[in-house]
Nucleic acid binder design. Structure first.
Lengths: 345, 345
DNA sequence: TGACCAAATTGGAACGTTCCAATCAGAATA
DNA sequence: TATTCTGATTGGAACGTTCCAATTTGGTCA
């Protein structure tokens, strides 16, 4: 009895309706929609008029089903709470959108079961390709499965242990090497390293860079300087508390990433220490916020946005030439020195 | 002559292949896949074995085409560079994923042409619903078009001028009122307001809250205290520079959002001022980073993540009951006092 | 034995496109 | 006039599902 359901069971307007309205066949309409040169201009014009008049909207699902294609790209991100990944995502999306693709985005929050589910889902939707930033401890088998499924896969940031995948990441060893050397050159001798021990290859590389810098300057490294923390702002605070409790105190810390460094800056401030004067800090990633902390953060800039764009580009290249050999691209990071890394007192 | 193309033109495994392998009809397989109770357990088991053996993957495109449905939700975000929106996105994605939906995400970067394109795209893909955070100056006509297209639409954060949409946002007036009153109660008398003049209804509400707080305490407001800036970290720096140049100087600033406040904190630090002692700052949004700045930021917390979840929930509700009347939900923000808002010297 | 029933299974039309092969109209050629 | 050609258009079979209606099977009951 209510008025709201009087609407005629609205089946959506199809290509056939347009065809009828324009007095042509559906094949013709299809060709017009693809702006085929085969169709006479006047006919095309007439069809376009009908399209507008009827409010026709293209049904990409049906089209994609028929031709074996799609223009959706799956993007799987492990930690969007970290601005590094958010900025990277923006870069990816931008590049893909420019190329006419649309992004199916999923966030795993480092959970393997979620990651599994979303990859399946993207597979079910026949995504044209997938960019995956693997969650911690992603089993090789999963990558293998995705790779073998025939859908082009680019892995970013965290390089899988073995196997030949398209990979885009940063030169982590080099990055922390530069940062650590910079601190040493500033005069620091006792430098802590704040990271998540056992955080996979990325951790290993970043730690190795730090170790190499110390070694090359003949500086001893105390085992306690490797402080094991969560890779969050709170982790950074925690790490600083541990560092300040040591005797003798380190005078500087290389942080695993910018987010950790942010926590460190904040904690140091609460201890009444002026960062850059009383204690030195370096970050890693080069997120936008690093330039605007108090004080601004010295960091290893890998260009999160352009790294995302590179990953997207790698996938696009792969789509263009499906059986090209897998590529591996390592971004050269560059150290951006700001005020957080002054010499020791 | 190369070896790589010897692979037999791999048509993907379909429900029919599974049916043949299991010795049943494709209808049966379809029913098994939907775990229909109609099928005898032994049969179902046999079918499932074949599914596994052949490595069949469900083709959701085909399924969605047949039944008039989909489980993709479009999410359109205007500014992912701002952690507020990133955190909100995470909340949305989480809620939607829990409900079995997958997110088609797009980033407009405040560009109307992009927004137009992505909405069309989502329409073409027959997204089950759309959550839209409109770019600045989004024309009413666009919203109307989307709404009339029959696909459920929830608008977040920026409330459209008129019309009845499902909307989820925050009580902006109340938020800045609380923040401003807090500063006044701390003893501040000259308080600047840093925002983007003409930034639409959100700006108007936040400014109004500030003005009401001042009025209720019988404090005069100098027109120059409304400082017009970009809504970025750099904008925040810029605003502080302008404030510090004024005579007499304001002793505090209410910032339009957290990102602006971050820039402000940084700039004040570079001027050698200790925030919370020499100058007071409040933010708006309650992003995670606000708790870890130096010093930690007093801010109006709207809970970006849970706001995203609310928006997703509103859409899910709408999907459940398509012709429910449009709802409007205003989150009550709460002021989180930290160290950035101490009394004047 | 025949009729009836419930449970399990199945054939085939539909969903809205694309694209191949076929047709058609009219001009140009023989 | 009959033939060929070219450019424009079209019919209809696919794509891989779902789901309705119909069929089969085997048991129960009168």
């Amino acid at each position: 009895m209510t008025t709201q359901n009087n609407a005629p069971k609205r089946r959506s307007v199809t290509i056939t309706d347009v065809a009828r309205a324009a007095g042509v066949s559906k094949s013709t309409v299809s060709l017009v929609l693809q702006s085929s040169p085969l169709i006479a201009p006047e006919t095309a014009e007439r069809v376009r008029k009908s399209v507008a008049a009827l409010g026709y909207v293209y049904n990409r699902r049906a089209a994609d089903l028929r031709r074996e294609s799609s223009n959706m790209i799956g993007i799987v991100i492990n930690d969007l709470g970290n601005p590094f990944f958010a900025e990277m995502l923006v870069g990816m999306e931008r590049r893909l959108a420019d190329a006419g693709y649309i992004s199916l985005m999923a966030h795993t929050n480092e959970r393997l079961d979620v990651q599994d589910k979303v990859l399946t889902s993207m597979h079910e939707y026949h995504a044209a390709g997938v960019i995956l930033c693997p969650a911690f401890d992603t089993p090789q088998a999963l990558l293998e499965r995705t790779r073998l499924s025939g859908i082009p896969l680019v892995i970013v940031v965290r390089e899988p242990a073995a196997g030949n995948y398209n990979f885009v990441g940063a030169d982590n060893e080099r990055g922390t090497f530069d940062a650590s050397r910079h601190l040493v050159e500033q005069g620091h001798r006792r430098i802590a390293f704040l990271g998540r021990v056992g955080g996979g290859p990325v951790y290993d590389f970043r730690r190795a860079g730090y170790e190499r810098a110390m070694r090359e300057h003949n500086l001893p490294v105390a085992p306690e300087w490797f402080i094991n923390i969560a890779l969050t702002r709170d982790g950074g605070r925690d790490g600083i508390r541990q560092a300040l409790a040591m005797i003798p105190q380190p005078t500087a810390a290389v942080c695993y990433n910018d987010v950790v460094a942010f926590g460190a800056l904040s904690e140091l401030g609460e201890h009444g220490l002026v960062v850059g004067r009383d204690f030195a800090i370096t970050g890693f990633d080069g997120v936008a916020a690093a330039a605007h902390t108090n004080p601004p953060l010295t960091t290893v800039d890998v260009g999160p946005g352009s790294l995302g764009e590179s990953a997207a580009q790698a996938l696009l290249d792969r789509l263009a030439i499906p059986d090209a050999p897998p590529t591996r691209r390592l971004i050269e990071p560059k150290l951006v020195v700001r005020q957080s890394s002054g010499p020791p007192k």
